[in-house]
Design a protein around this nucleic acid. Structure first.
Lengths: 222, 222
DNA sequence: TAAAATCGTTATAGAGTTGTGACATTTCTA
DNA sequence: TAGAAATGTCACAACTCTATAACGATTTTA
């Protein structure tokens, strides 16, 4: 899955620099040129995975943006500080940022920190949350509205596969190949039945399993 | 069990910051505003589990407090240093601290270090309590509703392994590998039989051993 | 040494899972 | 709007997996 990163810096050259390096690492980049735009973009893009904030920006500065975002989410945040002053330290502690990088910095350092933070945060995810649905891969259960339901082996594999291809329509053939195995030669109707059973177990989250008539199915949080 | 942590720092904002983050992790916090108070509080609170000391403090500084405490106890100690100097390193070696964290630091890093140190120090305790079940690894017994039952070697290893992987489903293969050994080539049915025997011994806590059909077993306090 | 405890295996009944076909329902198209 | 195509739903039979008891072999304990 391509991770989405929001960068806020008022210097366009700096944004471009960071953006280029991160795109090379296969990240998707969203750029904001000041603090207020950063907040706007954060709110309108619901699945941003990491935020990089310059401290010095017109309008809301980096600290304000950081605190604002931290109110809403535990998403990892990296602060770019021109020089660490006493003030910055105090800000940093209370604003909830995860990492600090002092300007000037080597882009490679930045990339390394981003990679590390992404991995630390999402690397060994055994619990996947999408909307009101929580999938616990270790416990082999789903939780919806505080109700725990067991998933059978096929159901789990099916749901996991669809979530990992979130928003993409997957054909029955591909589902059969990936979940039942390439040599499996049963009918495609089998997929429908299992989707039906999954929807029943997903209950209020059943709508997340979307039929794409003529193509297959996709997982999408409505 | 709630672990008790003593924090000594002369900056109240810093104390509050650390305290907030650790309380969120369910630690109980005791705050000292200088080195002498830290020593007082350490002596008057007999069951402190970990100490965090700022190096720079009026009165007795962090190193002195560290050495003092180390005379009395092997309790884990984390030092907060403004910047690591040659001198600090030398101090560090002789004062007996377990960890160093350089300011400024991310609160999350601190929390992670504290968690790790707590686990390293107290993680391998010999009495494990889960719900109505008490497992005594040294006595090789379990206690349920005041009734003591002996566990055989296999039963003990099985129960311990499952508890240490609480809430995670463990396959029979992994259980066989970890408890019977990699070279063991018996049938997976053996696990079932032992689970059955364990459940009988666990009596009212038998439900803690949950069958995950198609996957294996997990330990979970209901 | 005899009795008791532990252990691995096997057989079997029962419970959960799965695939399939039949039919109902929805959606698309001419 | 009628018919075709695609999908949803249900029931059932086949299949797989698990719980449990019983047994013999081995080890430990009294």
């Amino acid at each position: 899955m391509k991770r989405k990163i929001l960068i806020a810096d008022d210097e366009s050259r700096m944004r471009r620099l960071i953006s280029d390096f991160l795109k090379r690492e296969n990240y998707e980049i969203i750029e904001a040129s000041d603090g207020d735009e950063a907040i706007d973009l954060f709110l309108s893009n619901k699945n941003i995975d990491l935020v990089i904030l310059d401290v010095m920006m017109p309008g809301s500065d980096g600290w304000e943006v950081c605190e604002y975002i931290r109110e809403l989410s535990n998403i990892p945040i990296i602060m770019l500080t021109a020089k660490v002053t006493e003030n910055d330290e105090l800000h940093g502690f209370t604003s909830g940022a995860d990492e600090y990088i002092t300007k000037p910095f080597s882009p490679l350092i930045l990339v390394a920190r981003v990679n590390a933070l992404i991995k630390r945060t999402y690397g060994n995810e055994s619990i996947i949350v999408r909307g009101i649905l929580t999938l616990d891969l270790e416990a082999k259960t789903i939780i919806i509205n505080n109700k725990i339901t067991n998933l059978s082996s096929t159901e789990l594999k099916l749901l996991e596969f669809l979530i990992k291809n979130e928003s993409k329509v997957i054909s029955r053939e591909i589902l059969l190949d990936n979940i039942w195995g390439f040599d499996y030669d049963g009918t495609a109707r089998t997929v429908d039945t299992h989707m039906n059973r999954l929807r029943i177990k997903l209950a209020e989250a059943g709508d997340y399993l979307v039929t794409a008539r003529g193509y297959g199915y996709k997982f999408e949080v409505v």
